[in-house]
């Protein structure tokens, strides 16, 4: 499995759709066999995974919005993306 690198430009896997569940008022990732409810933090990360933005840029962009050090944000982003990669829900474009 590819090791995640801050230069990667992640995107959702082709079968995966990000959607707001309007009935339960929460963000979800939908895919053929089910769904994953996202935490607010995970949602902020996932909605930036457009295949153009590097992980490093995602961290910086979150830093503009959230009151946390870049180091903590970087750790959050890498952990969240590693989890999604394990589930085969994201693609890491070089």
């Amino acid at each position: 499995m590819t090791e995640i690198d801050p230069h990667h430009r992640p995107s959702l896997a082709p079968r995966v759709r990000l959607q707001i569940d309007t009935v339960r008022q929460e963000p979800v990732l939908l895919y053929p066999e089910g769904l994953l409810v996202l935490s607010p933090t995970a949602h902020e990360i996932v909605r930036r995974c457009d295949g153009h933005t590097s992980i490093e840029s995602i961290v910086r962009s979150l830093g503009d919005e959230f009151d946390a050090t870049e180091e903590i944000l970087r750790q959050d982003v890498l952990e969240t993306l590693a989890d999604l990669q394990q589930r085969n829900l994201i693609v890491l474009d070089p």
Partner: peptide, 8 residues
């Protein structure tokens, strides 16, 4: 195949 193809 982890991370490449989901096998259930």
């Amino acid at each position: 195949l982890k991370g490449k193809m989901d096998v259930v």
